[in-house]
Amino acid sequence: MTADPDDSARKVELALDLLAHLEVDELSVADAVDRIETVTTNPTLTREILDEAEKRGIVDREGGRLRTRRGGTFVRFESQVVRREGEFDCRRCGCGLSTGHFIQFESGELGPFGSSCIRKVTGRES
């Protein structure tokens, strides 16, 4: 089975949106990968996302650290995070959820996340 290039491009854009909206000034590459894995677990695509984030000026890479260059951009919980009731599994930790939190980006929707994982993924909480 071959990867759908349109799906890969969509995942890259979604992960770039996520990285551009992180509420931290600096994080380890491992922590960035933890966030990217909410979009894709494909190692090749993860490397592509990190390279593209650097090319577009979203992050600066130095050793094993990334400095974000978000310029005041962050997830607005009041308008960009939608809560839905239902049966979900958190994209970050895999726990079962009765309320899912979904982030609305221009490139698409990312989620569901639990109430604590949504804060960790966006960098609002470490």
Results as ranks from 00 to 15, higher is better:
G96I: 05
R35N: 07
G123M: 10
A53V: 01
E23Y: 07
S116K: 14
L16E: 00
D31G: 13
G96D: 10
M1C: 01
L110S: 04
S115F: 08
L50R: 02
E85C: 00
T44Y: 15
I118T: 10
E125G: 03
P112A: 13
I49F: 00
G63T: 02
I49M: 02
V82D: 06
D89H: 14
R10C: 03
F88E: 02
E26G: 12
T41G: 14
D31T: 09
R61V: 04
K55I: 04
A20G: 11
T44R: 15
T68D: 13
E125M: 09
D25F: 09
G94K: 06
A9L: 11
L45S: 14
E13R: 13
R47G: 10
K11N: 03
R61E: 05
F105N: 08
E87N: 07
F74Y: 13
R65N: 07
T122Y: 09
E13C: 01
G64Y: 04
D4R: 02
E13K: 12
D25L: 10
L18E: 04
C90V: 10
C93Q: 08
T40E: 11
S126W: 10
E62A: 06
G72E: 12
V12D: 01
V33S: 08
L16A: 01
R47C: 04
C93P: 06
T122G: 14
Q80C: 00
L66N: 10
R56F: 00
E26D: 10
A20N: 14
E37M: 13
E62V: 04
A3F: 04
F105Y: 11
R10L: 10
I49A: 02
L19F: 02
L22A: 09
S107A: 13
E85Y: 03
L14M: 02
V81F: 03
D51G: 00
S116M: 09
D89E: 13
L27A: 15
K55Q: 02
E52N: 00
I36Q: 11
F77N: 02
D7S: 12
P5C: 02
C95G: 07
S28T: 15
R35C: 05
R76E: 12
A20M: 05
V24F: 06
D17E: 08
A3P: 01
K11D: 06
T122A: 13
V82R: 10
V75A: 08
E52Q: 00
S8T: 14
T44Q: 14
P112Q: 12
S28N: 08
L14F: 03
L14W: 02
E87Q: 12
L19D: 04
E54N: 01
L27H: 11
C93D: 06
S107I: 05
A9F: 07
R65Q: 07
P43D: 15
R76L: 13
E52K: 03
C117R: 09
S98V: 12
G94R: 07
A30Y: 13
V59G: 01
C93R: 08
V24T: 08
L45Y: 11
V12T: 05
R69K: 15
S8Q: 14
G71D: 15
D17Q: 03
R91P: 03
E54F: 00
E26K: 14
